[in-house]
Amino acid sequence: MTSRKPILFFVLPFGLLFAAFYLAPIGYAIKQSLYKVTRTGTFGPAHEVFGGLEQYQRVFQNGPFWESVGRVLLFGVVQVPVMLGLALLLALLLDSGLVRGKRFFRLAFFVPYAIPGVVAAIMWGFLYSPNLSPFTAVTSNWNLLSADLVLWAMANVVTWVYVGYNMLIIYSALLAIPQEVYEAATIDGAGPWRTAWSIKIPLVMPAIVLTTVFSIIGTLQLLAEPQVFRTFSSAVSSTYTPNLTVYSTSSIPNFNLAAAFSVVLALATFVLSFTFLKFTSRGGDK
């Protein structure tokens, strides 16, 4: 029994911070989402009273919010496979021995991730803007900030930022594959393509699943890119992504409704991530 004390001691710093900065805010958000404001007259003082699920009813009746959820799902369905496919390809290339200067490329691919998301979005925003872009040949023919293209313009920014990060996770999984496996494959007559397809990819599948879950969560929580692009593009509304809806609602300020939006968004993220995990792990059992 005494051996538990040190465990408690080491877990406590994390536990405290986790409780203070994670559990407490979530609890507070849930509490807020269950309250509503009442007042008398046009400028009467506001009172917060328990409102049950009234805010949630508003969330489910809010058209723009669900449109924004649909928008990020579309974004995710296209952008996540493209980004992870690219990340996998780059990781395999780095691992294949075909590339010289591995260390340089590993760092070069990773550098965009070190740039804060807002800075990256501003930089790309300038590159896309017709009057400011140095690539006038492109921007004069295609308005990358128009309603049709801006979602994919943002997908490009997100991909640019995160591809290196995901590549690194997959690449370290590749490095962890024991050398004997490759030797066995070579003895069986597998070439580089065969090794990549039948050995490497199946063995790094857990890393790919992990990066997919991270990407799903990241996609649902898109905020910085659309927030920055609002100033560049007339196609990005104040409810373009779910998190932007939360942000605009809280700046009204309508904190109770914003809290309800956040809780619903968090639940949706949980459901999606766990469905994906469940789906992939069942596939792995076969």
């Binding site: 400028f43 128009s146 990005v236 509304s237 009204i252 300020p253």
Partner: peptide, 20 residues
């Protein structure tokens, strides 16, 4: 009005759509 932030945000979403 007492919620100009939301009035402006909504009108601006529509104005942006109109110019596009």
């Amino acid at each position: 009005g007492p919620t100009m932030t939301s009035t402006y945000a909504s009108a601006s979403d529509g104005f942006k759509a109109a110019v596009s």
